[in-house]
């Protein structure tokens, strides 16, 4: 008899499946889980650092964390767009190298620095556009197209110069790294900020707006969910995918400006492995590598986790800096596995 009852209780055609409150909330927001994990890790790292080495939670450390990782945040934002559509951009690190070497050389050659800055950004856009065209119109797999762009940009950078190129001291581009004291703390413990950090914050805000408040952004998510469905829904899939790579390239250009301004020099080997850092930041922040789910703010947290990791490694002194890439790679793998687990849970 009981079987009959349960049969009658089957949900009728127009009702959603019912589940318990918390369970349902968790299921509905499983996508947030990795982001929470990243946030927890970030907090745990701060606590650990504070206990083990001290002087983590103080204005100067926080300021340095932001200033030193502004470029990574910008890169991660760009990559978030690409990965949300289910694509990848491996060229960002090399694009930074080319853009910044070209920028420094042109500035030192006496070009108008503001024009050079715009040019540096546009160099990034151009690489992104080429990747996008290769992917969208010639069916080249994203990783192949952007890998080719990576080699191309790196090669072009080496053609320009193979030695560190120093930005002239009086160049206005250095102004982007001027430190403004927000809070004048005791001794050197000041809360400072640079235009580079402000650029990063603006980039993040614009990205959040684009992704969550425009039809373009919704299409980005839809493509990541199912490109086929998006096409059948009549969404502008082609132009959106093209734009996504242009955005990623452009932001690589912006990152090049910010980084060059801070460092005051550029070299053809700048940015080796940054694509991995950016991918790791994005993935740690909760963006699914398969696309369709994730948040720009998560990627920001991811970038800061990596930045803080570097701080802790430096403070520790016992860990060799060479191991950084190994640790980053390891973290990336762990988070990808976590994503797999969550995805298979969601599929039930």
């Amino acid at each position: 008899m009981s079987t009959v009852t349960s049969f009658d209780n089957r949900p009728t055609s127009v009702e959603p499946k019912r589940e318990g409150g918390p369970a349902r909330w968790l299921k509905a927001h499983l996508g947030l889980l990795p982001t929470f994990a990243a946030l927890l890790i970030f907090l745990a790292m701060i606590v650990y650092g504070e206990i083990a080495y001290g002087r983590i939670l103080q204005a100067s450390t926080v300021s340095n964390l932001l200033i030193n990782n502004a470029h990574l945040v910008i890169l991660a934002v760009g990559l978030t767009f690409v990965i949300l559509t289910g694509g990848i951009d491996l060229s960002v690190g090399a694009v930074i190298a080319f853009s910044s070497v070209a920028g420094v050389l042109l500035t030192n050659a006496g070009w108008n620095p503001w024009f050079v800055i715009v040019l540096m950004v546009l160099i990034g856009s151009l690489f992104g556009l080429i990747s996008g065209v290769l992917i969208q119109f010639f069916d080249v797999q994203p990783f192949i197209a952007t890998l080719a762009m990576m080699f191309l940009a790196r090669g072009l950078a080496s053609m320009l110069s193979t030695t560190p190129e120093r930005l002239a001291d009086e160049s206005p581009m250095r102004g982007l790294a001027t430190q403004f004291k927000l809070v004048d703390g005791p001794r050197v413990n000041d809360l400072v900020i640079t235009p580079g950090v402000i650029i990063a914050v603006v980039v993040v805000l614009v990205a959040v707006f684009l992704l969550h408040r425009t039809r373009f952004g919704r299409t980005v998510y839809a493509i990541g969910g199912s490109e086929q469905s998006s096409t059948l829904m009549g969404l502008p899939v082609v132009s959106t995918k093209l734009w996504v790579y242009v955005i990623s390239g452009t932001l690589a250009g912006v990152a090049a400006v910010v980084y060059t301004a801070r460092l005051g020099s550029a070299q053809n080997i700048t940015g080796i492995g940054w694509e991995l850092d950016a991918i790791a930041a994005t993935v740690i922040g909760g963006t699914l590598l398969m696309g369709g789910a994730g948040f720009v703010l998560g990627s920001v947290v991811g970038a800061l986790v990596l930045g803080l990791m570097n701080v802790l490694i430096t403070r520790d002194g016992g860990i060799r800096p060479e191991t950084t890439t190994i640790i980053t790679g390891g973290i990336l793998l762990v988070f990808v596995l976590l994503q797999r687990a969550v995805a298979s849970r969601r599929r039930e």
Binding site: L147, G273, R320, T323, T325, I326, G329, L332, L333, R340
Partner: peptide
């Protein structure tokens, strides 16, 4: 990573690409 975990080949091997050079530096202590 590729066959059992099911990761995309370029991600798996990219990690080894970057971590490998780090590993070499660790082996030779830089």
């Amino acid at each position: 990573l590729v066959s059992v975990v099911g990761l995309q080949p370029f991600i798996s091997t990219l990690v080894i690409l970057l971590a490998g050079r780090g590993l070499a530096k660790v082996i030779t202590e830089g």
